[in-house]
Amino acid sequence: MIRSLILAGAIAVIAGTAHAEEPIVGKWKTASGETAVIAACGGSYCVTLKTGKYTGRKIGTLAGTGGSYAGEITDPAADKTYSGSGTISGNSLKMQGCVMNILCKTQTWTRL
């Protein structure tokens, strides 16, 4: 009986550790068809393009948990940085960049 409880506890700890990664981490197909990778970096999440004209360029930094994130997003073509946010819903990531929190542009990215 005790052995079963210990085994069940160990399985619960391992399962909890496997799901500790935030849902934003991973590879995403952008609205323009490029691939972006979002990975943990220094207490937040860095967005880096992996394909296309701006391959290797970091285009954002977001912080948050549980599917809702905020930070900065850079438009690589215009080389301008905006306040940004990201919201996860299933395999979709709604990315939004705003100027003065008034003029906003939204894109939906898909998990690869």
Rank of each mutant, 00 (worst) to 15 (best):
Pro76Arg: 10
Gly43Cys: 08
Met1Phe: 14
Ser68Gln: 15
Leu5Gln: 10
Thr108Ile: 06
Ala77Val: 09
Ile2Phe: 12
Ile102Ala: 08
Tyr54Thr: 05
Trp109Leu: 01
Leu7Val: 03
His19Asp: 12
Gly97His: 02
Ile2Tyr: 12
Leu7Ser: 07
Cys98Tyr: 05
Ser83His: 12
Cys41Pro: 05
Ile38Trp: 02
Asn101Val: 02
Ile59Trp: 08
Thr30Lys: 02
Thr74Gly: 06
Thr65Tyr: 15
Tyr54Phe: 11
Gly64Ala: 07
Ser68Asp: 15
Thr110Val: 14
Val25Tyr: 04
Ala70Asn: 10
Thr48His: 10
Gly64Thr: 08
Lys105Ala: 00
Thr17Leu: 12
Ala8Ile: 00
Trp109Gly: 09
Ala18Lys: 05
Tyr69Asp: 09
Ala77Gly: 14
Cys104Leu: 02
Ala15Ser: 01
Thr81Ile: 07
Lys29Trp: 13
Asn101Phe: 14
Ile2Cys: 12
Gly33Cys: 03
Gly43Leu: 10
Ile24Thr: 02
Ser89Glu: 03
Val13Asp: 00
Lys80Trp: 15
Asn101Pro: 03
Val37Cys: 09
Arg3Ser: 14
Ser4Lys: 14
Ile2Thr: 08
Ala18Tyr: 04
Ala39Lys: 03
Ile73Val: 05
Pro23Phe: 01
Glu34Cys: 02
Ile24Leu: 04
Gly33Gln: 07
Thr110Gln: 11
Gly52Ala: 11
Ile59Gln: 06
Lys50Gln: 15
Gly64Leu: 09
Ser32Gln: 04
Ala8Val: 04
Ala15Cys: 05
Gly71Ile: 00
Thr61Lys: 09
Met100Ala: 13
Thr108Cys: 01
Ala70Ser: 14
Thr87Trp: 11
Thr55Cys: 12
Thr17His: 04
Gly52Glu: 04
Gly64Pro: 10
Gly33Thr: 00
Asp79Trp: 07
Ala70His: 11
Val13Arg: 02
Asp79Glu: 08
Ile6Ala: 07
Thr17Tyr: 07
Glu22Asn: 06
Glu34Phe: 03
Asp75Ser: 03
Ile88Phe: 05
Ile73Ser: 05
Arg3Trp: 09
